[in-house]
Amino acid sequence: MLKLFKDFAKGLWKENPVFVMLLGMCPVLAVTNTATTGLFMGVATSFVLIGAGIVNSLLKNLIPAEVRIPSFIVIIATFVTIVDYTSRAFFPDIAASLALFIPLIIVNCLILGRSESFASKMPVSRAIADAVGMGVGFTWALTFLGAIREILGFGTLFRGTEFTLQVMGEWFEPLSIMTLPPGAFLTLGVVIGVFRAVENKSLSLTRLFGNSSLNTAKEEKSI
């Protein structure tokens, strides 16, 4: 049980897919101009992550190693198509604003990375715990980035839903650059920098990058 909890908890902070492992950067930058789109994207990605994790973990002994990655991609693409059709059917407005980025969940390195490095080696229960943890970690990261950009760029929170909050007062002049591509890069750069600074303080004995983030994120090494 403790093991399962560990599998779940690591995705939240220590191995956060966005801030530590830098996985799935495209949607992280593209759909975080509001907290609404960030949250929806996070949930959609989590669904695929969990679904693909379960199926890939169940099939791990049936799929020969040579075609493992193509099979995973097909399975992931199947889940993404399901998400695409259902979100267009039940959340047409948000689906329209995410447009291209729902199908692009297929190539989110986070999902393939977790399937390949974790789900394909572990029993289903641990695969689920890991996928849920990573999904929650991804979702909070996207919502958080979206919230920063939305507050600075529009002065609101959760635009386009019934729960829209006006955060800033009348005096506030929205910084529209925050909603534009440059704002995405700048916000993420600063947030990762702050995240690392906080980590460094709390783990001042551990060297920077010394934590266990190297198992999947091979890209990370050369960044």
């Binding site: 049936l62 099979s71 097909v74 399975i75 199947t78 399901i82």
Partner: peptide
Amino acid sequence: VLTIIVMCSAVLL
């Protein structure tokens, strides 16, 4: 194997 997987997903989709 790959064909079976694609067929299954085609049916599901």
